[in-house]
Amino acid sequence: MDSAAARDRISRLPDDLLHGILVRLRSTAAAARTSLLSRRWRHVWTQLPEIVFDNPHGPAADTVDAALARIHIHTAANNNNNSAPPALNRLAINFPHLQFAPFRIAPWLAFASRHLAGELSIRLARRRLQMEDEVDLPLMEKATSIHISSGHILLLPPSGSLFAALRTVSIAYARMDGQDMDCFGSSRCPRLQELYLWPVELVAVSDVSIRSESLQTLFYRADNTRPLEVVALKLCLLRAQGLSDSGRERSVPLQG
């Protein structure tokens, strides 16, 4: 066997290379297990550029909460040391066969709002709707894409907030407020290029209007829409389906 100095060479790699290894585990829980290896490894996993949860076994929501709490603590500690942690590029929470109450999801979205500069992906089982099933989507100024699939009533943040970096949004199976749809317009999402609402359901029959100077692709399938008005200068691909009888889409794909 080699000498002690030659062993355990991996621990002497700089943090960013260890991150490159751990991120390929594609599982935040598995990465967190390396914190037990030695003191050197204690907090390495908390600074990974991607956070991924998709193991449906065990208490899924508790696992997510415990991990995010740890990451939050260490990120805050690092900020105090003025050593900027690497950016969080991706937060993925995928439990497509599990249902979660809104109070379980809210802290995950709050975490994304605070830390994420990249892609958010939350895929959960559809839930039989209850009146109190409202989930507030907080503002995520640095998010570049948001993918949400769940059966909740998804409320978008109030006007005045700006999703400055957002380029892609896909929402499936959620219920939404028709009035909220103007959130996807240029005044709130100035860089939005792709919007997939396929399928969603409006909580009440309502007119929907989306006015965007950046939107290129729109897939729209929302029950209870009447009518759908799309004003998008750069739109090249529009697919709309499931509009109520009087709800023909009136799209104005002007050539810009």
Binding site: A4, R7, I10, A30, T34, S38
Partner: peptide, 16 residues
């Protein structure tokens, strides 16, 4: 590293 316990990882990676 994948699928191993911390002790197994330590052995695999040659930790003392």
């Amino acid at each position: 590293i994948k699928g191993k316990s911390p002790m197994e990882i330590r052995r695999t990676l040659g930790f003392p």
